[in-house]
Amino acid sequence: MQDALFDLPEASPEHAVIAHFQLGDDDLGEPDQWSVVFEAERSMVAAVKAAGVGEVDGNEFGGGEVVIFAYGPDAEALYRVMEPGLRALPFRPAHVLLRYGGPVDDVVRERVEL
């Protein structure tokens, strides 16, 4: 559908892949853990870009975990490309949330245990 005022195509919903990994302490983890995460993230950025399925948007360390964020038009396609890199990270417990739409309460989410 077109936006009549500006004649722009309607934006497709933004899906997300949000991966949570437990680290070795209750704060930011250790520098050796950071380097493992950064290397895996670089690999996933390249894979996602090559596949054209979205973008890896970064990470957040805190509260004893690291969270990696990625966004694109199809959460399943994005996860399939990222899955090898996510499973290769050694930190457990870990899970991934696949969000099928924007960050609203009534959007469908699927949890995948790693």
Rank of each mutant, 00 (worst) to 15 (best):
F69I: 03
G24S: 13
D3E: 05
A40F: 03
D74C: 04
R80K: 02
D25R: 06
V48A: 06
P84L: 08
L23Q: 02
V36D: 11
P73A: 03
V56A: 00
G29Y: 00
A46Y: 00
A75W: 08
E30N: 15
Y79K: 14
A47E: 03
G72N: 09
S35Y: 13
A51Y: 05
E65A: 06
D25L: 02
V36F: 06
D32Y: 03
I18C: 04
V45K: 13
A50W: 01
A11T: 05
I18F: 02
G64S: 07
P84H: 07
M44C: 12
P9Y: 11
D27G: 08
Q33A: 05
V81Q: 03
R42H: 14
I18Y: 00
A40L: 03
G72R: 08
P13A: 06
G29A: 06
I18D: 08
E55N: 02
F21W: 01
E65D: 04
D7M: 10
P31T: 12
G85Y: 09
F69W: 04
A47Y: 01
F38M: 05
R87L: 04
G72H: 14
L5T: 06
F21D: 00
S35C: 05
S43C: 11
F6I: 15
D27F: 14
G85L: 04
D3K: 08
L5R: 05
D26M: 15
G64F: 02
W34C: 12
G52P: 02
G85F: 09
E76H: 13
E30T: 15
P13M: 08
G52D: 12
M44S: 09
P31D: 07
L86Y: 10
E76M: 08
E65G: 01
H20G: 02
M82F: 10
I18K: 10
A16W: 00
G29T: 05
Y79C: 04
S35H: 15
R87P: 06
E41R: 05
D57M: 07
V36H: 14
G62T: 10
L23W: 10
G72D: 02
L28P: 00
E83L: 08
L28R: 02
V48L: 10
W34E: 06
G58R: 13
E60F: 10
Q22I: 05
V53M: 07
F6H: 04
D57A: 13
N59M: 12
F6L: 10
M44G: 09
L8K: 14
A47Q: 05
G52V: 10
G72C: 08
Y79A: 06
D26Q: 15
W34Q: 08
M82A: 04
L28Q: 08
R42W: 14
S12L: 12
G63A: 13
L28G: 01
I68K: 00
E76G: 12
Y79E: 04
Q22F: 10
G52F: 06
E14S: 10
G52Y: 15
I68R: 00
L23G: 01
L23R: 01
D32R: 11
G63E: 11
F61M: 10
A75R: 01
G62N: 10
Q33G: 11
G58L: 08
G72E: 12
M44P: 01
